[in-house]
């Protein structure tokens, strides 16, 4: 029973980390109708910049701020250099071009920082932990991750639903042409949204760095998860991304355990070792397929114009 509660907590926490990554992606996809496969490498870039700034300043917090800012700036440069020319084109062109950006940046960080994975320590203040259950401690850092995830979710929800810029963003999501016709500089709005998305990706990269390996292509796998999240949540919807991220986190953590146990009961230990992991790793995709079967536009689709 204790284990189940611990796993629920782990699921929520993984979900919030996924939300940090998916939030920027869903904004860009929703508002600009732009498939940015390079979002994962922007997350990677954030982690690398975090390590670099940590090396220079010795402070995790300074590194976090500087790296998120620099990742945002790098995102804007990419927007100006590559993405801007793709807005009017179809999704396949966007996929091809942003896939090229993935390869270029993955090799780029390898050239600059080397192929060997790098280390990013936790901030001193949060390096402690408390006892979660006998023999298992929970790092304060993960509590901070939960707070950061909730904070970003709250901040974005407020910005999108309660501010003038947020209103334009929502309007842009449902009908960009109309917003433009009403005299709003849609290009500037796009650039702003893209910058925010890049900052969020970089921010998530720095926050994840103390938990994972900072290495080339570290964002590639996460990108797939992030797409699962925004497809389940409904493209362009912050609320949808939040709910879907927590759902995916829970399914991946608790669901995997339950399925493996269920298979063990059904097939015995030797069968479970073979079938269990296979089914478990399909689980989030099965959930995605189920959601799409019932609600093809996702759980909370943003209102879209014709």
């Amino acid at each position: 029973m204790t284990l189940l509660i611990v796993q629920l907590l782990n699921g929520v926490q993984l979900g919030l980390l996924l939300f940090l990554i998916a939030a920027g992606l869903t904004l860009v996809f929703g508002v600009m109708d732009f498939i940015n496969l390079a979002h994962g490498v922007q997350y990677m870039l954030g982690a690398y910049l975090g390590v670099a700034f940590f090396g220079m300043t010795g402070s995790f917090w300074l590194a976090l701020v500087l790296a998120a800012g620099a990742a945002g700036a790098a995102g804007l440069v990419l927007e100006w250099l590559v993405f801007r020319h793709l807005y009017g084109r179809d999704h396949l062109d966007q996929v091809l071009a942003t896939f090229g950006v993935i390869m270029a940046l993955n090799e780029g960080v390898r050239v600059i920082w080397g192929a060997a994975p790098l280390e990013m320590p936790m901030p001193e203040v949060l390096s402690g932990s408390f006892q979660l259950m006998p023999g298992l401690r929970y790092p304060f850092y993960r509590v901070a991750l939960i707070v950061a995830g909730l904070g970003v979710a709250g901040g974005l929800a407020w910005a999108v639903n309660r501010t003038r810029v947020g209103m334009l963003v929502r309007a842009g999501t449902s009908n960009a042409v109309m917003v433009s016709a009403l005299g709003v500089d849609i290009e500037r709005l796009f650039r702003g949204v893209f910058g925010v998305g890049a900052v969020l990706a970089g921010f998530a990269g720095v926050l994840a760095a103390p938990l994972v390996a900072v290495e080339p292509a570290m964002g590639d796998n996460l990108l797939i998860l992030a797409f699962v999240v925004i497809v389940i949540g409904g493209v362009g919807a912050i609320r949808g991304a939040f709910v879907a991220a927590v759902l995916v986190g829970l399914v991946d953590t608790v669901g995997r355990t339950l399925v493996t146990d269920a298979v063990r009961v059904a097939l015995g230990a030797s069968g479970a070792a073979r079938v269990g992991p296979a089914v478990a790793s399909m689980l989030i995709y099965l959930v995605m397929a189920a959601v799409l079967a019932v609600r093809p536009a996702g759980l909370f689709p943003a209102a879209r114009g014709a």
Binding site: N10, V212, T257
Partner: peptide, 15 residues
Amino acid sequence: LTQMDFQSEIAKIAA
């Protein structure tokens, strides 16, 4: 092979 968070496995080990 693509997993990045092992909290779930770690909790099982502790248990």
